[in-house]
Simulated assay, not measured.
Amino acid sequence: MKLIDIDKTRYRRHLNRVLIGCGLALAVGSLLISQTLIALFPDPSGSHFHWNALGVVVTAAAIGLGLSKYRHHDYLTEVLYVWELKQSLNKITRKMRKLEAAAQQGDADALLALQYSYAGSRQLWKLDDNVIIMDELNTKQAQLDTLAAKFNVTLNVDDYEDSILKRF
């Protein structure tokens, strides 16, 4: 996955609208379905938990299908990009110990994966206004730059592909 610059205000506005829309759709849809089922199939004991749960499950599935169907719509471009970036960074995080060990030995793929991870994390944290641990990231980036210079490796995040993680 390639890192691209996205408009932070557009991303935040669209993400907030999608989240609010999904929340409202879940509330309205689950109530509508469960109340319809309760009216059609009343329980003499007064317990309608199963109808309420079914309403929530069906509505959540419908929302998921709707988001899946329209995931490539222009309105969701930034939201989908950040979702995929988080997934890509999680793949790297799961292999971080092995990557860091290989980077210490000068493995170019490990160094590239770490560079991508740091660049992607920096972008993600700026988009979410989460700059609390940016100093720690800058320290790790400086260490990575030192390793890259030591082993004479040029790091370009555009060269990163998820497939290099298979080795680690």
Rank of each mutant, 00 (worst) to 15 (best):
K95A: 07
I63H: 15
T146L: 10
I133E: 14
L111S: 04
N130S: 11
G66L: 07
L15Q: 12
V82G: 07
N156K: 14
T36P: 04
D145M: 13
D129P: 01
L111W: 04
T59A: 11
D109Q: 05
E100A: 08
L89R: 06
A148H: 13
I33Y: 15
E100H: 13
T139V: 08
V79W: 01
L85A: 05
C22H: 07
A110Y: 02
A60T: 03
Q87K: 13
Q104P: 02
Y160P: 00
I6E: 08
L40H: 14
N152V: 05
G21L: 05
D43A: 11
N16H: 15
E84D: 10
I6T: 12
L144R: 09
Y11M: 05
F49S: 06
H73L: 03
V56L: 15
Q105E: 07
M96P: 02
D145Q: 15
W83I: 01
I6F: 11
L85T: 01
M1P: 06
T77G: 10
P42L: 10
V131P: 00
Y116T: 00
D128Y: 06
A39V: 02
I4K: 15
L76A: 06
S45W: 12
Q104C: 05
L37F: 14
L147H: 08
E100Y: 11
E84M: 10
D43C: 10
W125E: 03
S47L: 11
L112N: 00
W125F: 05
V58I: 14
L112H: 00
A25Y: 09
Q123W: 00
R12Y: 13
G46M: 12
I132A: 10
R17F: 09
W125H: 13
L19T: 03
L32I: 05
T36N: 15
K91D: 09
E161D: 10
I6M: 14
Y116H: 03
K140T: 03
G120F: 02
T93R: 14
